[in-house]
Structures are given as C-alpha cells and as structure tokens.
C-alpha cells in the first residue's frame, strides 16, 4: 500500500518566513524575513519556535476552523514543533522524516481529510541553520572547514492549510517511501545517502499508479544537492530504466552560485520554500511530482560507524 490516491484534498493558504541568506537567494517571494537569527529572543531554538508560531497565528486569522496541526522539524524529540503547538488548543500530531517531514505531514493530514475524518488542518515545517549546526555538527562560532559535498541547512518555516474544499492546487496522490540503506556512512554527503530513496520512491509511485515518467510536467526532489541530483539521475536510469528529464532539485537551486554554499541547501524547509514560492506560483507546471528526501541519522549512530538509512515520500500536485 505504498501509494494512495486522494479525491478531495487541496492546498489553500500558506505563509513563509525566511532567514537572511534565504531572503537573498533565488526565492521569488516570501511573506516575512528575519534578519536576526535570534528573532529577538535569547536562543536560536526559541527563534525557530517563534517562526512557527508566527506562521500558525497568520494562518489562523483566515482559517478559524483548523482541526489539526501536523508538522515537524529537525530538532531532537521534535521540540520546535511541539513547543509551538503548546500555544494552541488545536490537536497536534508530530511527524518526523528528517528533511522529508513536509511530505510526511501532508500525507498524514491528506489521508485524514480524504477519509472525511477532518475538514481542515495545517501542515508545518521549519529548519534553522544554527539549531541544526549545534545539534548535528559543531558550535556556531567554530570554524570547521566545509567540504564541497556538504550542504547548508536553510533557515525558514512554512505552513500550509489543507482542506477538503476545492482550490486551484489539488493533492492528487501520494507515495509513502521505504527506509533505504545503500551503505553510505558519510554524514557530510547527504545527497549520496538520500538519492537511492528518491529513485526508489519515484519508481514505486510510477509503478503503483501505472504512469509513465512524462506524465509529470516536473519532478522536484528536496535537498539532494548538486552532486546528489546527478547520482539520483544515474540511479533512475541504471536501476529502474527511467530517464529523468523534466527534473530539478530544490536544494541545488535555492541558493545563488555566488553565495558559495557548496552542494546547496538542505533541511526540511528547503523543498517547501522552493515549491511554494518559485514553482506553484509560476503557473508553468500543471502536474508536479514532489519527492521530499530525508537522511534518517543521528550523530550518535553516525559516530558508532553505522551506515545511514534514508527516506523519500512523494506527493503529486495538480495545479489548475
């Protein structure tokens, strides 16, 4: 039961907050930018919670009848999203798929709306460069040299309302990926970790729904990065005989070349930032397959020399 078809799940209002580097990136629009990584608070963790709160507050102004918030982030025990949710009396379900969290949230919420259990909910995700650096890498002020294959965790948050009432963006179907481990142990090379999961989910999706790859006007992956995107294309043709042409990777395209951020952007926010602010409003694409990719590791298990499993969840969007 890897793939699900939805009849009445639509995306409605969304709200985007971006960090300083993301505001200078290739993003065409955003609702709010923060110049200060602390967002006026004492800690980076507090700042990330506040970003999510501001988004929920904005979305609740127009949508009073929200029944459920589903979301997640990169922090241990999902504290960012959970601390945000503690400010509201709305039901809340945390979701963790690392950088594929946005799609796992949409799939959970979409399935509940499609089954007519609820009518309206919010899917939210965020990442904060400094919070991720502290948790996964080195102290903020520690100047560890960055290698070319490494990606840079984007700062931002995005929430979107999912509803059963018709809008111009339909969530048409979804594929829940499997956790896949191809033996990569290098946590700096997350593109290589996640590419096999992305290729596998793409294959499963097309196979389950009996579609050819050119059914889609665009296939967009989350944060494989410049090198991971090439590995993904090669895996698709080698393993699954799929030639991927109409394709782009959000992580490779978010930052400008002159921002010098190595392989590109990563973090759960990368994909929704690019999707909502550059792709969906461009009106260029009607049928879009969104494959979010996540590297399911912790520093503890990497230090214990384990190879890293990865996950990719896909959602198919139809823009009218």
């Amino acid at each position: 039961m890897a793939s699900l078809k939805f009849k009445n799940v639509y995306l409605s209002d969304n709200y985007t907050i971006v960090g300083p580097l993301e505001a200078k990136s290739n993003l065409k629009k955003y609702n709010m930018k923060i110049n200060d990584y602390y967002f006026g608070l004492k800690t980076f963790e507090g700042a990330e919670v506040k970003m999510q709160r501001v988004i929920i507050d904005h979305l609740l102004k127009k949508n009073k009848d929200i029944e459920l918030i589903v979301g997640g982030d990169l922090s241990n025990q999902l504290v960012t999203t959970s601390f945000m949710a503690a400010n509201y009396s709305i039901s809340y379900l945390g979701s963790y798929s690392a950088c594929a969290t946005f799609n796992s949230s949409i799939i959970t919420l979409g399935a509940l709306i499609d089954a007519k259990k609820i009518n309206k909910g919010i899917a939210i995700t965020s990442s904060h460069n400094k919070v991720a650096e502290r948790q996964f890498r080195y102290p903020i002020e520690y100047g560890a040299p960055r290698v070319k294959r490494s990606t840079y965790t984007a700062t931002g948050a995005l929430g979107v309302v999912l509803t059963s009432s018709k809008t111009n963006i339909k969530v048409e179907s979804a594929t829940i990926g499997s956790s896949i481990d191809y033996g990569v142990k290098d946590a700096l090379n997350m593109g290589a970790v996640m590419a096999p999961a992305a290729a596998n989910t793409l294959y499963k999706h097309l196979n389950d729904l009996n579609r050819k790859i050119d059914y889609y006007d665009l296939i967009i992956t989350g944060d494989l990065g410049k090198y991971g995107a090439n590995i993904f294309k090669e895996l698709c043709s080698n393993n699954y005989n799929l030639i991927v042409n109409n394709y782009l990777d959000a992580g490779s395209n978010l930052y400008k070349e002159e921002q010098n951020l190595n392989a590109g952007s990563s973090g759960p926010i990368t994909l929704p930032l690019y999707l909502f602010n550059n792709i969906l409003n461009s009106k260029k694409y009607k049928k879009i397959l969104v494959i979010a990719t996540g590297s399911l590791h912790s520093t503890t298990l990497v230090n214990q020399h384990n190879s890293i499993p990865s996950i990719a969840h896909a959602i198919s969007l139809e823009v009218s």
């Binding site: 290698v147 070319k148 294959r149 191809y182 033996g183 990569v184 090379n189 290589a192 096999p196 090198y227 090439n230 590995i231 090669e234 895996l235 080698n238």
Partner: peptide
C-alpha cells in the same frame, strides 16, 4: 553504488 557516489562526488 560506492563507485557511482565516487564518480559524482567532487574531490577536495
């Protein structure tokens, strides 16, 4: 797979 990764990963 290791070989494919090596092929596409840039050297420092």
């Amino acid at each position: 797979y290791k070989n494919i990764v090596k092929k596409y990963t840039p050297n420092e």
